[in-house]
Amino acid sequence: MSQIHLRPVQFVDTPIGQPDGAVARLAGGMQWFAAYEVTEDGRRRTVPVADIGALGERAAHLHGAITAPRAPLMLGERTLRFDQPLVAGILNVTPDSFSDGGTHGDDAAGAAEAGFAMGTAGAAIIDVGGESTRPGATTVWEGDEIARVVPVVERLVRGGALVSVDTRKAAVMEAALAAGAHLVNDVSALLWDERSAEVVARAGCPVVLMHSPDPRQGGHGRVTYRDVAVEVFDWLEMRIEAVVAAGIARSRILVDPGIGFGKSLSDNLALLNNLAIFHGLGCPVMLGASRKRLIGALSNEAPVAERLGGSLTLALRGAEAGAQLLRVHDVADTAQALRVWRGLRDRALVG
């Protein structure tokens, strides 16, 4: 028998003037909603928030997870709060990334300066990666990846930046964390390297678990989904439980639905339209859709460098769905879009 899944729907501008219990706040953030789309046994129906208690223990658990404020992350002397959407700036130090490969070459100082510029432009955290995970990319030897990543991480941390390391290799995680990185972002959800969960648990650092259908093979295997949002949710739910069992605190886990990883255009659009379902996992949600292939597919095959408009649209879609962290290439433009979005939300909340 399938389990119930809940997706917040019927968002409202403000709770002011609403009857008691008629609306709920989404994950302690800036969005309020009045109902759930309930999925059970392949069927969907809409249920008012006030009536969710009649649906049983599973629904009550999901409702509690969806509405609970996300605890801030204490990262050294800095705090990352999740009561509004934040920007994570993508800093690739690879020769072959799909978007900006080769931009920084072997210039660690130049890469770090680019990271600092992202921070000035509005990025809350800089996500440093030394291996491309685009389809068909060659696996990078961990020694080379460490050599690319660590000098950049060291410079950014010395300059006061919050840094995440985008890697699936335990040795790279260890080296980057030793250099001062604050967070691990793993596209394999700690499945590619059997030592990864141990490394993260020992460090006590936060980790982003991303969904992919074949994380041990690179993440781009194609499968057929009957209900992609529900199936990705269930996969992430199982991964969270496994990671918690491995000694990683649930409060240190973030999730990412893995837009573009082993999913068709239709799958990706369905995930984006159903993004709010992932708040039922009780973890902050990261959305990484910047400059991805789906934008080109919907805009006359626009090349990577011409996907800003689509990237901003998807970032704002994430903000509307309550995503707490938006991983983007175009930091200044995204930060500006979010400032305007927040201005609109602030005004709406006061009527």
Rank of each mutant, 00 (worst) to 15 (best):
S164L: 08
V49G: 05
A179E: 01
R252E: 15
A178C: 13
D214V: 04
D227S: 09
V207M: 05
L338D: 07
D100T: 09
L326I: 09
G282E: 04
S212V: 08
L177A: 13
A68E: 09
A88S: 14
Q10H: 13
F116T: 11
V165G: 07
P15I: 04
I125A: 05
A88D: 08
W141Q: 15
L86K: 13
A321W: 03
L6V: 08
A147N: 14
F11I: 15
V244E: 10
K169I: 00
R25A: 08
S188I: 03
A108T: 00
R226V: 11
R345E: 11
R43H: 12
P303D: 00
G115M: 00
D186V: 01
A348Q: 12
A321I: 07
S212C: 13
I277M: 14
K292E: 01
R58K: 13
G119H: 07
E77R: 15
G17W: 05
G262M: 05
L316H: 01
H279Q: 06
R291M: 07
A124K: 02
A124E: 15
Q3A: 13
E174N: 12
G136D: 09
L183N: 07
L344H: 11
D96M: 05
V232R: 00
G343W: 04
D96Y: 00
E142Y: 11
C283H: 03
D20W: 10
A181K: 01
V232T: 06
L80D: 00
G115W: 00
K292M: 05
G221L: 06
W141I: 15
M30T: 10
S212K: 02
E57G: 10
S188K: 00
G204K: 08
K292D: 02
N185W: 04
N268C: 03
G159W: 14
A123L: 02
R168E: 06
G218C: 14
T133P: 05
G247A: 12
A179F: 04
G29P: 09
V244G: 04
L190M: 07
V255H: 08
